[in-house]
Every structure is written in C-alpha cells, then in structure tokens.
Design a protein around this nucleic acid. Structure first.
Lengths: 343, 343
DNA sequence: TTGTACGCGTTATCAG
DNA sequence: CTGATAACGCGTACAA
C-alpha cells in the first residue's frame, strides 16, 4: 500500500542512460577519479542531480569491500558532556565526508570480544576511540590485528603509527595553578582524575611543575585520587577539608568533581569563594550552573574530535600511512568560584 | 602489509561447504525460517560458529533491499541528559536485535530536505524520533511518503497509525503539585517547558487540574513560559520573584530550569528550601548535584526508548501494521529542595 | 525438506 | 579517456 521509496529506485544505470555514457564513467565521476573529460563530467553530474540519484551504500559496500562507516567507541558515563562533544565533532565530519557513524558504548572493563563482534558485524572502515578506551591494549591491538585504522582522542600514550589528538593539559593545568597562586593561595589542594585517563597524569604534572617553579612545597597530603565523577569530588573534598591545615583553594581535574567540592563546601557551611576557592577543568555546561560559577579550563573537544575524524577518513581514502599527532590549546576561563586569599 | 581481516573473509559459501549443505539452507537457518530439519540446523549453526561466520551487512542489505539500520533523529541540545537516555535505550535494543544505529541531529528548524537526504544516503529501515522532532509534520509526513516506519518518543499528538511512547506527565505533574500543596504552599509558581514539546502542555494541565481539585485559584501571573534550559529557568525565576506577592514554591517543568531557579535564588540571597521550595522534572544527574538536591520526577526514558525501538524493529520484521501506543509511569523523588511552608 | 540459478547496485579489471 | 563484463555475498523464486 505504500507509495514506495520513489527516489530510492534510481540507480547508476538510469544516470548512465540519461547522460549517454556507461555506468563506469558515472562511477568515475561520482568517486572523483581522474581521466574523465570535463564535459562528460558535467553531463553526468547534471543527470545525477536531475534524477536525485543517491548511490546505494549497500552496493557500494559490497563491491568496494568497505562500509563507508566508522565506529565511535566510548565509555558510557553518567555525565555525558565529554562524549557529547566528541560525538558532535565526529558526526560533523562524517556527514561532510559522506560517512556514517556507528556508536559503540564500552563498559569500564572493555571486552575485546565485544569489540571484535562489533567490527565483524558492522564492518566499520575505521574507529575513533575516546579516553580511556583509546588506551586499552586489548582494543588497540585488536583493531590493529583486524586492520581497522583508528584515531585516539586524548590518549595516555599516543601510538606513533596512528592518529591522535590531545590538548595541552599540562600547560593548562600549570596556568590554572599559577592563577591560583597569583590570587595569593599557598596551600592548593589537587584532585586527580580517573587513573585510566591519559589527561590525569598530565594535569597533575602541570600542577606540580608550577609549584616547583614557584618554589612552593609539593605536599602529598594535598593530592587526592578522584575518578572524574561528582561523588568522588565530594569524597575528596571531605578529605582535604578534614586536614589539620586545609587548603584555601582546591583545583579539581574536571568540572564534575569541582561541582562535588562546591556541594560539600555548601554542606559544611564553607563559603565559596570567600573561605575556599574552587577550580575545575572542561568548561562543561555544569560549570556555569553551579553557584558560584566555576573557574575552569575550556577544551576544544568538538574541534579535536572533528580533526581526528578528518585524518582518519583521509587515511581510509588512502592518504599517507604515517602517524599523525596534533595538540590543541585550552583556555582558562575565570569565573566567580575563585578569589584572592584572605589568609 | 596488513595481516588482513581474517575472519571477515568467511562467507556463506564456506559455511555451506563445511556443513555439507547448500547456501540456501544456511540462509534459512540464519534467518530462522521454517522448514529445516533440526539436525541440519544444528550442523549449520555449528559450522557457522566454528568459522566465526558473520554475515556481510552490505550483501544482506543489497540482496534484501534493507539496511538493518535505523536512525535516531534528535534535537542537539545543550543539556544532553534526555538524548543520552534515549540513545542508551535505543542502542541497547538495536544491539540485541542486530540492527545498527545512525544518529541524526536536527536543528531547531528541522529542514525536511536534510532528512530526505539522510534517508536517501543511509537507507535506514526505520527511525526513532525524539521530542520535539517527532511532532514536526515536515518530518513525519516525509517519512510516511518515503515509506520509512517510525516511532515517536514523547509526542504531542501520537499518530495513531504509528508507534509512540509517553509517560504519564499529567499525573506526575499533578502529584508534584499535590505534594507541594501538602507541604502547605498556597502560591506555587509554574515554569512551562518549550512550547514545541508535547510534555509541556500535559505538565501544565496536571498542575492546573490539581489546583482546581483542591479549590485553589489558578493565577495566570504564576505561570511563566520557559524553554527547558538553564537560562530560561533563571529568567522565569526572576519574574516570579519580582511579583508583588511572590510564590513560596516554584515547580519547573524540568531540572535544568529548576537549577536555574535555585541559582537565581542563591544570587538574591533567598534560601532554598527555607524561603523558597523548588521542584523539577526528569531526575537528570544535575538534579542530585544542585544544592540543595532537587525534588523531582523520574521518567523511565531508557525503558521508553527501548520499548519504542523494540516495536519499531518488530514492525520492520513484518509484525502487525497497527498503531501501537504505550504509557510509562513516572516516580516522584523527594529531596531537600522542598520543605513545608513557613508562611 | 533442500538446492540451483539469478538478481540486487556498485566497484574493479582490462581491453579498446 | 571510455566501456563491456566480471566480481562482491546474500536472499529468493522456482524447481526437485
């Protein structure tokens, strides 16, 4: 009874007929292969447009032995901000390049068999891996074994033969620490991120190096292990505030944890930033919704993901086989959660 | 130089050979068609497993004239909570049913040409539409014209010939209003949601009906138009608090706006819940991260999306052609942002 | 209950 | 520069 998928019945043969050429020529034009006279090219393009021709992806995939799709492997977190930005970056490039995107959430413990199945079932031509999945040897080795090119988003250790993007976490963290020092803070608590994330060590390193450069003592008691989620931020805040000599400022490795710190301070009647300054990292939406709004660092995740995808697709199209690594720059955004130290 | 996609070279022919049958029989078994002796079935399954056989989706799609993929059309909002849950529900069912999922963000003004292109390029077999895209006639009419079955997630007006899920917004809103009344509040501000969302009217209706049932006046001045985002929550809160006789409680149609209300109250030094009670809707992560945590209503969005997808795939497989509509139940979650009225 | 042969819409080979 | 024709892997009439 359905009216039928009208435009979907147009095939390459129809285009060829209308343009008065062979299907191979049409194929050449549509795949921008060389060796076509420009007037024939015009004719073909015109015919294709007139007929609203869209190549059938299944047929292309079958004949060309590829799927024109890539997979996005990500950990499925409570707070989706990071994944959302990554998704937006990847999807934008995919659309522009005519690829489709398949999402693949991974548990905390990535099961490489699941990834194998994913690849076998979907036949993705490549993959974008977000942190921390991008550092799982189980996954990267498998992809390499299967011959599936991939790009790593914020990896701990970039694989030099592949594609990876990062931002200047260490410098940004250094800048934030310096900013807090400039406000007069002398005891600055630091909440580390999830140990599996590559950014975690770098952000700590920036904090530490800044203290050293300013001849400040590095007090281990002021550094607490968090896990990038709100609850761990609360827990770490409690530990820091329970110290005999508590910090006057807390720098959390991301905004969700910083929000947890603010929550805990509020619970205890500690005013922010009056008695305690708080800083985060990421500039997630939550950062501007806490009271007071969070001083934080903005990462260009969307752009990073778009870049990585661009390079990945470039490689799928047969660009160079070399490794490719890029670093983006973060930006410190001062808001009201930090102020000069009264003490 | 690559080792090659070893397991991907196994075709149905290999399975047929190994099982000592024809490819048609293999096909029958794998698609669970009838008329196969159970011992042949066993042989085939065994061979398939032994060879790690995975059917080639491109070939299946080409031969069967379908793609085994569905599209998820969504508005790309700042706050991703709702989409995230919908995605999780859809993706879970897709994986279980052997479908793959293609994401398709839509602008506020949905361009039907973009949707047409999406369908033409991807050849999705069906689509799941989230609010408010699910109510755009431009989109639904087009899908119908193209013969693409779809499911609506929280539509304003369910199309009786299609699939739709909702939750009992009106009842839930009624319950929340009654809860606030039971705390002694007599002037309750209400912040409406985005006018394009189906839930908006229902939530307002529940609030209104509850007031009437309790012989309370319905004061138009207490109802303000919001847009489901944090900023509109702030703006509406200011208007309500600026009234000559401001409300003692504010019920916002979602958590993001409620967070904006809390923020504004904090800005003005109004204590929550001491001087102002605040309630939200959705039970997003943000709801438990505000200070104080938000009294809210939990919607089972993941389950709703999973159900819708299940039905959609059922129909793609040739189940009944009838319309299918389901309503899920929300749950009121009291937290610390509401308390009994002092006045 | 099972098998043969053809077609799906592209890309790729190789000859013109 | 262009075109005929063979793959690609699977579903499906139709036949046995």
């Amino acid at each position: 009874m359905r009216s039928g998928k009208s435009s979907q019945k147009v095939t390459i043969v129809d285009v060829a007929k209308r343009a008065g050429v062979s299907i191979k020529t049409v194929s050449r034009v549509l795949n921008s292969e060389p060796n076509v006279r420009s007037d024939t090219r015009e004719k073909v393009l015109e015919a294709a447009k007139a007929l609203h021709y869209q190549p059938n992806p299944s047929a292309r995939g079958l004949a060309g032995n590829r799927s024109f799709s890539i997979g996005l492997l990500y950990e499925n977190p409570q707070e989706f901000g990071y994944v959302k930005d990554a998704l937006n970056g990847v999807i934008g490039t995919c659309e522009a390049e005519g690829y489709s995107l398949l999402m693949r959430p991974c548990g905390e413990e990535v099961d490489s068999e699941e990834v194998r199945k994913f690849v076998a079932q979907t036949r993705v031509d490549g993959a974008v891996l977000t942190a921390p999945v991008c550092d799982e040897p189980e996954v990267t080795d498998l992809l390499e074994e299967l011959g599936v090119p991939f790009a790593q988003l914020a990896p701990k250790a970039p694989r030099s033969d592949w594609i990876s993007v990062q931002c200047n976490d260490e410098e940004a963290s250094y800048a934030m620490t310096e900013y807090l020092l400039s406000l007069g803070h002398r005891r600055i608590g630091f909440i580390k991120g999830h140990p599996d994330h590559g950014a975690t060590e770098k952000r700590l390193a920036g904090y530490r190096r800044c203290l050293e450069d300013h001849d400040m003592p590095f007090d281990r008691a002021l550094v607490i292990q968090g896990y990038f989620d709100f609850e761990s931020g609360q827990r770490c805040a409690r530990k820091l505030l329970d110290l005999q000599s508590p910090p006057s400022a807390i720098f959390a490795s991301n905004d969700d944890m910083a929000a947890g710190v603010i929550f805990t301070a509020r619970e205890r009647g500690i005013s922010v930033p009056g008695e305690l300054s708080v800083a985060g990292f990421d500039d997630s939406p939550a950062a501007s919704h806490t009271w007071p709004p969070l001083t934080t660092i903005k990462q260009p995740i969307v752009e990073m993901a778009a870049w990585a995808t661009q390079r990945l697709i470039g490689r799928l199209r047969g660009a160079s086989e070399e490794g490719d690594e890029e670093t983006f720059t973060c930006e410190l955004i001062p808001r009201q959660s930090t102020s000069s130290c009264e003490a």
